[in-house]
Design a protein around this nucleic acid. Sequence first.
DNA 1: CTGTTAGCGCATTCAT
DNA 2: ATGAATGCGCTAACAG
Lengths: 320, 320
Amino acid sequence: MANIKELARMAGVSVATVSRVLNNHPYVSENKRNAVEQAMKASNYQRNLNAVHLSKGKTMLIGVIVPFVNHPYFGLLVEGIANEAVKNNYKLVLFQTNYEETREIEALEMLKHKQIDALIICSRNSPFSVVDDYTKYGPITLCEDSREKNMSSTFVDHYKSFSQALNYLHSKGHKKIGYCLARNSGSNSRYREKAYEDFLKKINEPFVPDYVFYDCLYFEDGQTVIQRLIGMHSPPTALIVTNDQVAAGILVCCTEEDISVPDQLAILSFDNQPIAQVMNITTLEIPLVEIGKNLLLQAINHRQVHHDELFVKMIERKTV
Amino acid sequence: MANIKELARMAGVSVATVSRVLNNHPYVSENKRNAVEQAMKASNYQRNLNAVHLSKGKTMLIGVIVPFVNHPYFGLLVEGIANEAVKNNYKLVLFQTNYEETREIEALEMLKHKQIDALIICSRNSPFSVVDDYTKYGPITLCEDSREKNMSSTFVDHYKSFSQALNYLHSKGHKKIGYCLARNSGSNSRYREKAYEDFLKKINEPFVPDYVFYDCLYFEDGQTVIQRLIGMHSPPTALIVTNDQVAAGILVCCTEEDISVPDQLAILSFDNQPIAQVMNITTLEIPLVEIGKNLLLQAINHRQVHHDELFVKMIERKTV
DNA sequence: CTGTTAGCGCATTCAT
DNA sequence: ATGAATGCGCTAACAG
């Protein structure tokens, strides 16, 4: 297949000139530019990206690790990253890991081998210790509090946010508060659990294992929650829910089961996705798009490690 | 970061020698080999793959397009491809497309830009016309009959197989035969429908729209099928099912609904996955692993376009 | 067994 | 505005 040298020959110019029109540089005469473009068409020329990357010393590719791409939470996050990526002329390489460590390592190895310029980890399974080993090969940015670590991060304080949620419900008179968590046992979930534990101590209430619901990630998971709830002799009067999708599922089931919201059951979720607005769900907005944008910027401006905390915002609607 | 030249300097050898140990070539003395390995450790050396790929003119990467990785059908296919890939020292780049054409194009573009050496398309959405445009950039192999096209293929004849299934059921006395198809409107499904149409003509039976079930892909889809079936005044006496998973789902529902198999309802599926054996499902075995292996070989031995037909095999068990 | 050297395809000074 | 020359990091003859 044709290369730049052959193009130059065909167009009767130097390779440098060809390179200039390839990269839209100014200062190329119309004639020559046209000649080169003709040659490109005629020979069906295609740039060899391996050569470009080698020559430039970078690939303009940013790796993005997510457990699932098809979940709205990560969807929004990636959207924020992607928007900012195009603005800065970067392309994204998406790694869907299903939380398998092997898949995460694959991405890290690509960083090591310079196939990508930087790596954004939206949620991980691998321990800090293994990720840390790769920081020497390129910038890695995280979507969780990583102060003290050698990588940048953009995050919301989940301990603080969960506490805020608990206090809000408490101020509304709730004492029996349950909560739902995602299926990951990541640091975010741990922060939320710690906040819950401390809250119980503060208001002097006992821990009721039944009030905890794991594996709540999608809309359909709401059903399980309500099933278990109706079986209880003393159910919680309020629920803090992983995200708006699950909250919506719960809400729908409540209607079916004639559970009145918020009177019988108050529901407070996280994210503030469109579905929360449609269904009038009270939620703690997490600025996911903003976080994504910031993660991308940290990844490409790796002058130094930076930690940026963003903040949640209470959106009061009809479910509390 | 260190490069090969620096390694050479550190180890007191030439770059050629370094390259030799890097690539496990023979004919390198113990001393020098050790010296190089020392230097590699000391400098935390990592190969720049862009340079390797440029120099070799190939990447040893094969792209694989699948709509979903988490479906057993594609799981087996990929397994076959992957096994043969490691044997030949190739690595796989998996593209999960969800049947979105954009994602398919991304893979094709990587072929164009020499980021991958070849592309295997297990199932596609893009029309032949667009895929065809990319054959000039590298070998593309398909898992469907593509004779007359400029790309290799390994496939089973779905018209023939479906006819075989129909005739088998007919020979068992069935005239009212229904069938399930996957959600894709790909060429495989079309072949199956054509076979059905021709079969009806042959045995002179009318077409009953109710006997056709679309969107049957996973275990849980079996439930919908049975739901619809019990609502019918004159249900089919036999069902040809997309794959073993759906058949298993149907079978489970039959038990729940007290439908006796095969007396009231005969079930014949495709694939012969482990679940079919466990549940004693009569099935037409599709040699998926074999197909995968052959696809990979076609992709890397692109001396010429080749078309290989493999054959299904009737596995008689207890559901017909 | 080992080193020298010439590419791989492209971007980019540095002259002109 | 344009071209010659150099280098990106590595592999692979070739010569010894």
